[in-house]
Computed example of a mutant assay.
Amino acid sequence: MTTNDILRALTLLIRARNEHPPADPAAVTPETRLEQDLHMDSMAIVHVLEDIEDSYGVTIPDERLAGVYTVGDLVDIVRTTAGPGERVA
């Protein structure tokens, strides 16, 4: 699973949980900030993290939850917790 594959899958999860998703999904990059750029509140971010756990069948350790600010942070979580063959359902 490449970083671009993960980014595309996460963009779908983010758009599903965001009250005001970006009009252009291609505008979501690893540098996109969840709160400032996507206007997501902390509950929406928690829901995306839960969706990641459900989609990949993993448990994200609590210590990984602190410091999640960008889409790239979410990509890193997926890359380090999901197995090599895991895919978003």
Rank of each mutant, 00 (worst) to 15 (best):
A44F: 04
I45V: 14
E35C: 12
D41R: 07
P25G: 02
L13V: 04
I6Q: 01
T32C: 03
N18E: 08
G85C: 05
V58C: 07
D51M: 07
T29E: 09
V71D: 01
G72F: 13
R8M: 07
V78I: 04
H47N: 10
R79F: 05
G57N: 11
D37R: 00
L7P: 05
A89I: 09
M43W: 06
G72H: 11
T32A: 14
N18C: 15
L49M: 10
A9H: 06
A44S: 15
L38P: 01
D76H: 15
V48Y: 00
A89S: 09
L49Q: 00
R64H: 09
S42Q: 12
D24C: 08
L49C: 06
P61E: 13
L74A: 00
E50H: 05
E50D: 08
R87P: 06
A44R: 09
P30V: 06
L38R: 13
E31A: 15
T11N: 08
E35F: 09
I45G: 09
T3Y: 04
N4E: 12
A16C: 02
L10G: 03
L12R: 11
I45Y: 04
E31V: 13
H20W: 12
L74R: 01
R79D: 12
L10K: 03
T11D: 01
D41Q: 07
R79W: 03
A89N: 10
V48E: 00
R15Y: 04
M40Y: 06
A89C: 08
T81F: 05
A26D: 14
P84W: 03
D5E: 05
H20F: 14
E31P: 10
V68R: 07
P84M: 06
N4C: 02
G57L: 10
L38C: 02
V48P: 02
A66Y: 11
M40E: 05
D62R: 11
V48M: 04
T11P: 02
P22K: 03
S55W: 03
V75I: 15
L49K: 05
E31I: 09
G67D: 11
R79V: 09
H20A: 14
H20V: 15
D37H: 01
D54K: 05
V78Q: 00
V68H: 11
V58D: 03
G83T: 10
S42M: 09
A16R: 06
L74I: 10
G57P: 02
G57R: 10
A16T: 08
A9L: 03
V88R: 15
T59L: 13
H39Y: 09
G67A: 14
L74C: 02
T80H: 06
V71W: 04
Y69S: 14
E86T: 15
T70V: 11
D54L: 07
M1N: 08
A26T: 13
T11R: 03
T29A: 10
T11W: 04
E35H: 14
A44M: 14
I14D: 01
H39T: 12
R87Y: 07
P22F: 07
R79Y: 02
L13H: 02
I60V: 12
R17V: 00
A23R: 14
L34P: 00
M1H: 11
E19H: 11
D62L: 12
A66P: 07
M40T: 10
V75P: 05
A82S: 03
